[in-house]
Measured scan of single mutants.
Amino acid sequence: MAEQVALSRTQVCGILREELFQGDAFHQSDTHIFIIMGASGDLAKKKIYPTIWWLFRDGLLPENTFIVGYARSRLTVADIRKQSEPFFKATPEEKLKLEDFFARNSYVAGQYDDAASYQRLNSHMNALHLGSQANRLFYLALPPTVYEAVTKNIHESCMSQIGWNRIIVEKPFGRDLQSSDRLSNHISSLFREDQIYRIDHYLGKEMVQNLMVLRFANRIFGPIWNRDNIACVILTFKEPFGTEGRGGYFDEFGIIRDVMQNHLLQMLCLVAMEKPASTNSDDVRDEKVKVLKCISEVQANNVVLGQYVGNPDGEGEATKGYLDDPTVPRGSTTATFAAVVLYVENERWDGVPFILRCGKALNERKAEVRLQFHDVAGDIFHQQCKRNELVIRVQPNEAVYTKMMTKKPGMFFNPEESELDLTYGNRYKNVKLPDAYERLILDVFCGSQMHFVRSDELREAWRIFTPLLHQIELEKPKPIPYIYGSRGPTEADELMKRVGFQYEGTYKWVNP
């Protein structure tokens, strides 16, 4: 592979701008107003304001973009700056750019259920340069409990009458099928589907988006991507930290609602779906819905739930269990780990287990898709061969690698495990991989909904998990304890083995 010439960040961002501006969906010269509902909250200060700053800094926003914060707290732009700027990672050389960014910011205080507050917000936006005809993007960085009041008031008082209007809704989209349907029906009564952007930030990850290209742009994968060759698929999300004093919020939802029903299920769809007619948003989402419709409700015998306990040999936070978090209700049975087996009941995947695993306070930070292939028929190497695996590593250190057998150097035919490896950090030294939120917010500006969740996708996802969630809430089974920093409950490994996964433990990928 030829040595790549190092590029400056300015040059890299210039390439990104060229890609972005050559499309006809990006209205570079139009006025846009980006409204952050819930501007005083954690999500706004840690993710949304920093993301908008990065896009502005790199010249990736339309030229005439204004940012308006809205929340109940009586704040000023200076207050917003004070709480969000520490997350910007701005350099001293960017000081003038930073001043320009905050000059485009404003803030309006108001209630979430008060019509007069929204009329005041609308008047404020109209007073901005060309504000009355601007395109408006409303980001709901809010708890779902206020979605209905907020969307109703936005629709009645704050819509642009000339430009387009788009609304970005953060997960969780309800707690179960019934609450999700209620919320979807409410929002759909106010906005068209092409105006609604239900954001799952995992769909903005580079390697998640790469799944489609790997599958449908490489001839070698087509013939082997089926039940005849693939023994099982494992989708993993692991965090090495616990709730760390923020367990009160987590306890309301648990690990299945927080990660599995959305992030992991979306990745499953991209692995299992048929080739779409095109890369058009609805063509892709149509195929994802077909996959979900082929999955039956989760069966309790295919589920393992766990909850982390303190590690007596650990240090600091590792010595504390979930129930030691003062914000967690006493005696909570909320799971911090889950392993679930699903089956896609169609011709391509009949009988292939899709194993979804996620948890907190585990032994490493990792998100990946792992396809394990069947054993080689007619073994001539005296059971020395391990199964081939194709691994798409989402985070950290984005990579695609194939675990395969090669001859060990020497005189004899002794096979050993090795890999074919594409590590993004080595291959793409001159490429700026956008943060997931950067990519998705740019998608909203461009009107691309491919990486957002459609209402029928959402409904099918909740259909699969709601009976299990209701059973857990009714019966309150005690989750299996696992030690902070471990791989999780051993019962999860036993479940995976029972459905056909072979864990060798003899080879570990190392970032080159």
Results as ranks from 00 to 15, higher is better:
114 D>L: 05
218 N>E: 00
137 L>C: 12
14 G>Y: 05
195 Q>N: 12
177 L>C: 11
58 D>G: 04
240 P>C: 12
168 I>R: 01
34 F>V: 13
254 G>E: 02
101 F>C: 00
7 L>D: 08
46 K>C: 09
99 E>R: 09
24 D>V: 11
223 P>A: 14
38 G>I: 00
17 R>V: 12
164 W>I: 07
243 T>L: 13
15 I>K: 05
31 T>Q: 04
133 Q>I: 10
218 N>M: 00
50 P>I: 00
240 P>G: 04
184 S>H: 03
154 I>F: 00
4 Q>P: 11
75 L>N: 04
133 Q>M: 14
129 H>C: 13
124 H>E: 09
189 S>W: 02
74 R>C: 10
9 R>D: 14
59 G>S: 02
144 P>E: 05
40 S>Q: 06
230 I>S: 01
6 A>E: 12
200 D>W: 02
229 N>P: 02
198 R>T: 03
34 F>H: 01
198 R>V: 06
200 D>V: 13
169 V>F: 10
63 E>D: 11
194 D>Q: 05
105 N>H: 07
9 R>W: 04
155 H>K: 08
97 K>M: 11
106 S>N: 04
181 D>S: 04
216 F>K: 02
177 L>Y: 07
82 K>G: 06
67 I>Y: 03
252 E>G: 11
57 R>F: 01
120 R>N: 07
215 R>N: 01
75 L>V: 06
98 L>E: 02
29 S>C: 13
118 Y>D: 00
88 F>R: 01
191 F>C: 02
228 D>N: 09
223 P>Y: 06
172 P>W: 03
154 I>G: 00
137 L>N: 02
205 K>E: 15
62 P>S: 05
126 N>K: 09
47 K>F: 12
190 L>Y: 12
81 R>P: 00
186 H>L: 08
138 F>C: 00
37 M>W: 01
154 I>N: 00
207 M>V: 14
130 L>E: 10
125 M>P: 00
123 S>H: 07
167 I>A: 02
226 N>W: 03
185 N>M: 12
177 L>G: 08
239 E>Q: 13
138 F>Y: 09
190 L>A: 12
43 L>K: 13
125 M>C: 11
97 K>A: 05
156 E>Q: 07
111 Q>E: 08
242 G>S: 09
103 A>Q: 13
144 P>S: 13
214 L>S: 12
7 L>K: 10
121 L>Q: 06
235 L>T: 03
63 E>C: 07
70 Y>R: 01
89 K>Y: 07
145 T>H: 14
67 I>N: 00
23 G>L: 15
231 A>P: 00
84 S>R: 02
203 L>R: 13
208 V>A: 14
43 L>H: 13
84 S>N: 10
252 E>C: 08
61 L>R: 00
161 Q>K: 12
145 T>L: 15
21 F>W: 14
150 V>S: 09
51 T>K: 08
28 Q>Y: 10
191 F>G: 01
12 V>G: 14
88 F>W: 04
187 I>T: 15
102 F>I: 04
245 G>K: 10
35 I>R: 01
253 F>N: 15
15 I>M: 10
241 F>C: 15
25 A>C: 13
206 E>Q: 04
208 V>P: 15
236 T>M: 03
68 V>T: 04
73 S>H: 06
257 R>K: 14
160 S>V: 08
101 F>Q: 00
96 L>D: 09
112 Y>H: 04
27 H>K: 09
209 Q>R: 10
106 S>K: 04
189 S>N: 14
153 N>I: 03
5 V>N: 09
216 F>V: 02
4 Q>G: 11
247 G>S: 10
182 R>H: 09
19 E>H: 10
28 Q>N: 06
159 M>L: 11
120 R>K: 12
219 R>E: 02
97 K>H: 05
230 I>E: 02
227 R>H: 08
124 H>W: 10
63 E>Q: 07
254 G>D: 11
178 Q>M: 12
28 Q>C: 10
214 L>P: 12
118 Y>V: 05
222 G>I: 04
112 Y>F: 04
39 A>E: 01
96 L>M: 13
98 L>F: 04
143 P>M: 06
164 W>L: 05
142 L>S: 11
7 L>P: 05
255 I>S: 09
6 A>L: 06
215 R>T: 01
22 Q>A: 13
232 C>D: 02
95 K>I: 07
141 A>G: 13
62 P>Y: 02
203 L>Q: 14
53 W>G: 00
156 E>K: 11
157 S>V: 10
210 N>M: 02
165 N>C: 10
7 L>M: 07
20 L>C: 15
250 F>Y: 13
33 I>H: 05
163 G>R: 02
45 K>E: 04
72 R>K: 05
238 K>R: 07
174 G>H: 09
57 R>N: 05
61 L>F: 07
109 A>R: 10
168 I>W: 01
127 A>N: 07
155 H>R: 09
252 E>W: 09
166 R>A: 02
31 T>L: 07
84 S>F: 09
187 I>H: 03
251 D>Q: 06
170 E>Q: 13
190 L>F: 12
185 N>A: 09
127 A>W: 07
235 L>F: 08
148 E>F: 13
177 L>K: 15
115 A>T: 08
149 A>F: 09
3 E>V: 06
42 D>W: 14
158 C>G: 02
84 S>K: 02
130 L>P: 11
201 H>Q: 10
49 Y>I: 05
205 K>C: 15
216 F>A: 06
64 N>H: 08
16 L>H: 11
114 D>E: 08
92 P>F: 11
220 I>C: 06
238 K>C: 12
104 R>P: 00
69 G>M: 02
110 G>R: 00
13 C>W: 04
209 Q>V: 04
38 G>W: 01
211 L>K: 01
225 W>E: 00
142 L>P: 13
10 T>A: 14
38 G>E: 04
26 F>L: 03
212 M>D: 05
47 K>S: 14
45 K>V: 08
89 K>S: 11
77 V>H: 04
136 R>F: 05
243 T>N: 12
5 V>S: 12
106 S>D: 03
212 M>R: 01
105 N>G: 02
180 S>I: 09
256 I>T: 04
172 P>I: 08
164 W>C: 08
221 F>Q: 02
162 I>E: 09
152 K>E: 08
69 G>A: 06
87 F>E: 05
194 D>P: 06
199 I>K: 06
80 I>L: 12
93 E>V: 08
153 N>S: 08
146 V>A: 05
128 L>H: 06
246 R>N: 13
90 A>V: 10
110 G>P: 00
127 A>H: 10
36 I>C: 03
96 L>I: 15
99 E>C: 04
107 Y>W: 05
160 S>R: 04
38 G>V: 00
217 A>G: 04
186 H>E: 10
92 P>Q: 06
170 E>Y: 00
228 D>K: 12
14 G>V: 03
67 I>P: 00
83 Q>W: 06
106 S>R: 06
237 F>N: 05
154 I>A: 02
228 D>R: 12
174 G>K: 02
250 F>G: 04
26 F>V: 12
211 L>H: 02
120 R>Y: 10
150 V>F: 00
207 M>K: 03
158 C>A: 05
173 F>Y: 12
11 Q>D: 12
81 R>V: 05
218 N>V: 00
190 L>D: 06
171 K>C: 06
96 L>F: 12
47 K>R: 10
212 M>S: 02
251 D>T: 05
131 G>T: 12
129 H>F: 09
190 L>Q: 09
48 I>H: 00
106 S>A: 06
109 A>Y: 10
8 S>Y: 03
27 H>P: 03
82 K>A: 10
249 Y>P: 13
164 W>E: 04
102 F>R: 03
172 P>L: 07
158 C>H: 00
131 G>A: 06
92 P>W: 10
157 S>N: 07
175 R>K: 08
122 N>E: 06
146 V>E: 10
256 I>P: 00
227 R>L: 05
227 R>G: 09
75 L>W: 13
